[in-house]
Design a protein around this nucleic acid. Structure first.
Length: 288
RNA sequence: CGCGGGGUAGAGCAGUCCGGUAGCUCGUCGGGCUCAUAACCCGGAGGUCAGGGGUUCAAAUCCCCUCCCCGCAA
């Protein structure tokens, strides 16, 4: 089966590697164009590109998907199936309809919950105790496709979005392999989503990381866990990298009291312009 | 040359604008006090002020160059 893979960040690398390791015929990789990134704003290649190049898979970085050139390219590659994992772009209808076996996507939530760009962060921030990954046939509407299969996993009470991300990328890669095999055999399920049960996980902006400490401690803590990786959790102007919920014990000067009287203990922080450090180091030269 | 912040004792910072004795908190070492200490009191050690050049009677501070760290963008 000829497969065209589309993906961009680290999360997708895992899935591409799984396809290649499973000996599947990946005829090409679509990934986002190199973009200025980091200090100096030098052009940086997406993680997926690096892996594809090292494995000798042809890489394509079309700047536009709707001007016809991308479709022409896909015709040339002639994939029977397109596998999309965190590509970061909406595929136009003519591309979705091209492959004979369809387009399969791995989404990092239990659809129809948390449709959108940031399902992992929002699942944590909302205090979910269970989440997972879903393999879906892609529809025009974002993350609204028919479900092939899903895999659940419990969310640890203190788990961060970063930790969950690393677990789900593995789970997602396994789900992709399973889905592709089912599709190959022609036995893949096609269960429509319950649209009424859909919830959304909109892309996070910088200001979403600014956390209102007048909210209940539990909620503040969940948002810290959810937003640490991106866009970054900020309490009173201080970037928080690691924190804990004070369930019992003393509220000391490393804690911030929240709106409901509960408190969050800061463990690792980063002042503006500085590097991250333990709260004890921070308190030697600053006050909370 | 994309923009900005930063580098001062083991750690975290002030001092830099406006040049004139190297400071604070914590740690560390020694002593004291205490039934006791992660408490309190007294004392000490520890600095190439990132590096180089320049201006000056005098530079952490002003000027130029280099190195390193952090943020902005995703």
């Amino acid at each position: 089966m000829r497969i065209l893979f589309m993906g961009t960040p680290d999360f997708a690398v895992c899935s591409l590697a799984a396809l290649l390791d499973a000996g599947m015929d990946v005829c090409g990789v679509f990934t986002q164009p190199d973009k200025p990134a980091g200090r100096g704003m030098a052009l940086a290649a997406p993680p997926v590109k690096a892996l594809a190049l090292s494995r000798g898979v042809p890489v394509f970085q079309p700047p536009k998907l709707r001007d016809g050139t991308a479709l022409a390219l896909i015709r040339e590659l002639a994939p029977q199936l397109i596998a999309v994992v965190a590509y970061g772009r909406i595929l136009p209808k003519e591309i979705l309809e091209f492959p004979a076996l369809g387009c399969v996507n791995i989404h990092a939530s239990l659809l129809p919950k948390y449709r959108g760009a940031a399902p992992i962060q929002w699942a944590i921030a909302r205090g979910e105790t269970e989440t997972g990954v879903t393999a879906q046939y892609m529809a025009e509407e974002l993350d609204a496709g028919d479900i092939i299969l899903s895999a659940k996993t419990p969310v640890g009470a203190d788990e961060t979005a970063s930790e969950l991300h690393d677990r789900l990328k593995e789970l997602g890669a396994a789900a992709l392999i399973d889905a592709v095999r089912l599709i190959g055999r022609g036995t893949a399920a096609r269960t429509p989503q319950d649209a009424d049960a859909a919830t959304f996980a909109p892309i996070l902006k910088k200001e979403d990381g600014v956390i209102d400490v007048s909210r209940p401690a539990r909620e503040v803590y969940n948002r810290i866990r959810g937003f640490t990786l991106w866009p970054g959790a900020a309490l009173n102007g201080l970037r928080v990298w690691k924190a804990g919920l004070v369930t019992e014990g003393i509220v000391d000067n490393t804690c911030i009291v929240c709106g409901d009287g509960g408190a969050v203990r800061l463990i690792e922080v980063q002042p503006p312009g500085g590097k991250r450090m333990g709260i004890d180091a921070y308190l030697r030269g600053h006050k909370l």
